[in-house]
Write a protein that binds this DNA or RNA. Structure first.
Ligand SMILES: [Mn+2]
Ligand SMILES: [Mn+2]
Ligand SMILES: [Mn+2]
Ligand SMILES: [Mn+2]
Lengths: 221, 221
DNA sequence: GCTACGTATTTGACTAGTCAAAATATAGTA
DNA sequence: TACTATATTTTGACTAGTCAAATACGTAGC
């Protein structure tokens, strides 16, 4: 049975691998994401390689094995089902769910997660639009593009937000930017570095920065 | 912030103190309840004394301070609210709730517990009839007596079971022995060491051993 | 008062996870 | 090619929690 520390490393390696596109995750990246010193990450990664959860390429980086990927998906499943529960059932704000899920994910049993999933009615995404892996480990994300890579005058539907920062989330919610909401993309200017949207119901205009828009995934329609 | 290990020691010291009646809990007792060697318990208890959670009386035993008692009640509150949730909401059998609660209680935040309590409608006992301490730390248990200390031909209502063993609980449930059920106490014999009950609705008779009956608390009426 | 036995404490060793700081490799630049 | 900046690895040390086994108490019985 993996310790919560191991679980956390594996989950972070997965998300970093996904985020980097490239396959190997360098130690600096990993240590920063884990909040530990680089030396600590190196030591741990060697151990993870020993137990076949990752393959370690000295001086280059680390890569999940299939076994590691399975564990990562199980952790993501736990994390996202718990977040969904906290928001939909216990009434947390979506900016608060992440912190608590971060601890709970390491304390729940498989029985708990399977019953929770059933109780929630088999949701396929969490409050941030992150897809929830099935118990068999399959995961499918809706097709989407970053908001800053979208053509102007398009009608878009918010699909997912790639940021856990509570401040960011509170702010987005106040603009009605959360999964399911629809907007018209009025203007997207690489020169000024802004993206302007108009909510399809309220018609309220919102302007956000280019990099923030990069963390918002939408589907064009 | 106390570690989960510290939380567990404190909770166990509380329940042992309650169970022994006497105030100090000897090391042997504590180490057995914790599943560690006596030496380990001694070391830990000295540390708990340093941080003022217990007062340690060498070669006699250990005793919670007020600070320790507060922590213990917070843990009991968590444990019992979680057990209630697992049974009533997620549909666990009452024999399964204990194990999962044992881990979760160390991973939940105060926010979680308070929202959970609200969601559950402020229950005052858990599935085993154990009273749930309030957020301010007050706890009140219904007046009750052990079933083996009851006069015969009395009508009794099951209040609480003092045993976590899944096998015992599954068995009791099959006899309808769980909080709220009513029985007529037909016979209680110290000689044969048995207690015979009859369910007040189904009229089905049940005979259980004297010591098992000691772990069943009832209210006479 | 002395002995035995059971309980309690001490000691030394081990594991998982961590940091600080020194040593080393690598890749880019002059 | 030689130098330098940066990433990486190594080393030694530390903490929390644990066990096994040696040692020390304390009390009940003789
Ligand atoms: Mn985590
Ligand atoms: Mn999420
Ligand atoms: Mn516990
Ligand atoms: Mn209980």
């Amino acid at each position: 049975m993996p310790s919560s520390t191991v679980e956390q490393y594996i989950k972070i390696i997965y998300t970093q691998q996904e985020h980097l596109g490239r396959s190997v995750v360098p130690m600096k990246r990993l240590s920063e994401a884990m909040g530990v010193t680089p030396g600590t990450a190196t030591t741990m990664v060697k151990h993870l390689d020993d137990v076949k959860l990752v393959s370690y390429h000295p001086r280059q980086g680390v890569l999940l094995t299939t076994k590691g990927e399975n564990l990562a998906l199980r952790m993501l499943r736990r994390h996202r089902l718990i977040e969904t529960f906290l928001e939909q059932v216990l009434g947390y704000d979506w900016s608060e769910v992440h912190t608590d899920a971060e601890r709970l994910e390491h304390a729940v049993s498989d029985r708990f997660i399977d019953k929770l999933e059933q109780y929630l009615g088999y949701p396929d995404v969490d409050p941030h639009g992150d897809p929830i892996p099935s118990s068999s480990g399959s995961i499918e994300s809706a097709i989407s593009v970053p908001l800053n890579a979208c053509g102007a005058d398009r009608r878009v539907r918010i699909v997912r937000l790639l940021d856990d920062d509570p401040e960011f989330l509170v702010c987005m919610k106040s603009y009605l930017i959360f999964p399911g909401q629809e907007f018209i993309l009025k203007n997207s200017s690489a020169i000024t570095g802004t993206v302007t949207l108009e909510h399809s119901d309220t018609l309220k205009p919102v302007t956000i920065g280019y990099d923030a828009a990069g963390r918002i995934l939408v589907s064009e329609r």
